[in-house]
């Protein structure tokens, strides 16, 4: 059942398809890019909510500075897998992980790993945007402040930089003191991305970041992801096949807690190895 490829040393990732409306086309778009070193390597990883096993023996490698999409039917364990990458599952009572999850070759479940420092390195954006009931400025400044940054000028610069990165600056620059709750859904989601960027993470985990947004806001988020992957490793869960096809280099298909197949996105969508993947993508399943 779990006929997954062994963890790779390096992954060949082609230039991803260009999202509509983006002017940033890579020079060699479509051709093979240099091999990317792995960021995350999970081997023989299983996950349990108490007695309920949610993930079975996951072997998977996520390359650096690329977008990896996780797809699969509802309840198959995509979110669980994503949350195990920054140990957000630790918060849930009675959860257990077996196997290895390596970040840059280091086991993140080792006893000497500090989850606080780990989560600073790995930003996360949730499906439902969760701005803090504070001002827009304070939302973005939260990460650096709790990390101990006290210099006002540094924080001001950082907030501006992150809001620009998240393509939100122009809309909010005149009302940074206003409550973040007054923003629209799409703006809130970009604010959450800006907030995650403010801790200067290496990885961004996104759990269906655009599922509650209209097409225009979704397109903006996708553009944003396309920009961000120059500098960040991005893992994104999505139910939107077109979205996965548009923005990701690699796609992993999960089903019933198992990783069925992972591969180059174009390959997965045009010529999957597994029958299940094909059924799911063509809509005959899930």
């Amino acid at each position: 059942m779990s006929s997954t490829p062994p963890p790779l040393k390096a992954i060949h990732v082609p230039g991803g398809p260009v999202p509509p409306g983006s002017s940033r086309r890579t020079a060699n778009g479509g051709e093979e890019q240099p091999a990317r070193p792995p960021k995350f390597v999970t081997s023989n990883m299983s996950f349990y909510y108490g007695a309920h096993q949610a993930l079975f023996n996951i072997n998977m490698t996520i390359p650096e500075r690329a977008v990896t999409a996780l797809i699969g039917p509802s309840g198959c364990g995509k979110s669980t897998y994503l949350r195990s990458l920054n140990r957000m599952n630790d918060i849930i009572e009675g959860t257990r992980v077996t196997g290895d999850v390596l970040l840059d070759g280091q086991d993140i479940y080792a006893s000497d790993v500090d989850v606080v420092a780990l989560r600073k390195r790995i930003g996360m954006v949730f499906q439902k945007s969760t701005p803090f009931p504070k001002s827009i400025f304070d939302n973005v400044a939260y990460g650096p402040r709790i990390a101990g940054e006290r210099r006002r000028s540094t924080i001001v610069d950082l907030v501006e930089h992150c809001l620009k990165q998240a393509a939100l600056w122009n809309e909010v620059k005149d009302r940074l003191r206003d409550s973040a709750m007054a923003l629209s859904g799409g703006q809130q989601q970009r604010l959450c991305i800006a907030r995650a960027l403010a801790t200067s993470p290496e990885v961004l985990l996104m759990d269906e970041p655009a599922s509650a947004l209209d097409p225009a806001s979704t397109a903006r988020i996708e553009d944003l992801i396309f920009e961000l992957k120059q500098n960040y490793t991005i893992v994104i869960v999505t139910h939107n096949m077109q979205q996965a096809a548009r923005i990701s280099e690699l796609t992993a298909f999960f089903c019933l807690g198992r990783l069925v197949e992972i591969g180059v996105t174009r390959q997965i969508f045009t010529n999957p190895e597994q029958k299940e993947t094909e059924d799911y993508i063509t809509g005959r399943f899930g």
Binding site: M88, F126, R195, T199
Partner: peptide
């Protein structure tokens, strides 16, 4: 809970 999770995810103790 989403409020706590958002805070933890940003590396808050």
């Amino acid at each position: 809970a989403s409020l706590r999770h958002a805070s933890y995810a940003l590396g808050a103790t």
